[in-house]
Amino acid sequence: MDEQRERILRAAAEVLAERGFDAGRLRDVATASGLSIGSLQHYFETRDALFREAFAWSIDDLIDRWRAAAVDAAGAWRRFELLVGALTSDPALVRRCATWTEFCASASRREELGEGVRRVHAEWRALISEIVEQGVRGGEFDPPLAADLAVGSLTALVDGCDMAVASGSGLTAERYAEVMLGTARVVLGVRA
């Protein structure tokens, strides 16, 4: 990807986290990126197109990092631990959580954003499902409930933790990881 385009998308993602989809302006992105509004419009015809692409870019970057973090682990539980580590040790955790929360809220008002939100959920569920299936097949997990319910519970827990981080409730990255791992041990029936 063109460096300038990525710079714009990164700045737009920051603006989305700070101001939201509806209140963010091209001027805010221009200031954050150090570029003119004309330069932004060279790459993106409209503010909405820029923000939609910034969200998609953020999603792709996040999903790539999630998948890379868990790919080489020896076992299912270790894959899950590495995934949670990648999720919670993100240096831009507050921005990521705020952007995700903002896009979920905006998607409830703007249908064109719904597909991106659904794609993130589908990717996250697929990744967790792969880990759960591996753990059940390998005897590491013995979920006390249906596997799809366990996956759904962990997916919902991520959303709840993301909202808590975004709102400034005091949920730290360390506590986020503890909550995810502790809950997963129970709902997946992790064997010692």
Rank of each mutant, 00 (worst) to 15 (best):
M1A: 11
M1I: 07
M1D: 12
D2M: 06
E3W: 12
E3A: 12
Q4L: 07
R5P: 00
E6M: 06
E6K: 14
R7V: 01
I8S: 04
I8E: 07
L9H: 02
A11W: 03
L16F: 03
A17W: 03
E18A: 15
R19Q: 13
G20W: 06
G20I: 00
D22G: 05
L26A: 11
A32R: 14
A32H: 04
G34I: 03
L35T: 09
L35Y: 08
G38F: 08
Q41F: 07
F44I: 02
F44C: 04
E45N: 11
E45A: 10
E45C: 00
T46A: 04
A49T: 11
A49F: 01
L50G: 04
F51M: 09
R52L: 09
E53P: 01
F55R: 13
A56S: 14
W57R: 15
I59G: 11
I59Q: 15
I59P: 00
D61S: 14
D64L: 05
D64T: 10
W66R: 02
W66H: 09
W66A: 02
W66S: 00
A70M: 14
A70T: 13
A74T: 15
A74H: 13
A76M: 08
R78T: 15
F80S: 06
G85T: 09
G85I: 03
T88I: 06
S89R: 15
S89L: 07
D90H: 14
R95H: 12
R95I: 07
T99F: 02
T99M: 13
T99Q: 14
F103G: 07
R109I: 00
R109G: 01
R110H: 15
E111Y: 12
E112I: 11
L113T: 02
E115P: 00
E115H: 13
E115V: 06
G116N: 09
V117N: 01
V117P: 00
V117T: 07
V117G: 01
H121P: 00
R125E: 11
R125W: 01
A126E: 15
A126C: 03
L127V: 02
S129H: 15
S129Q: 14
E130L: 03
E133M: 03
E133P: 01
G138R: 15
G138V: 01
E140N: 12
F141N: 05
F141E: 07
P143F: 14
P144Q: 09
L145Y: 09
L145K: 11
A146T: 10
G152T: 10
G152C: 08
L154P: 03
T155L: 04
T155M: 06
A156D: 09
L157R: 10
L157K: 08
V158D: 10
V158Q: 13
D159M: 04
C161I: 05
C161T: 11
S167E: 15
S169M: 02
E174F: 06
R175V: 13
R175I: 08
Y176H: 14
G182P: 08
G189K: 03
V190D: 03
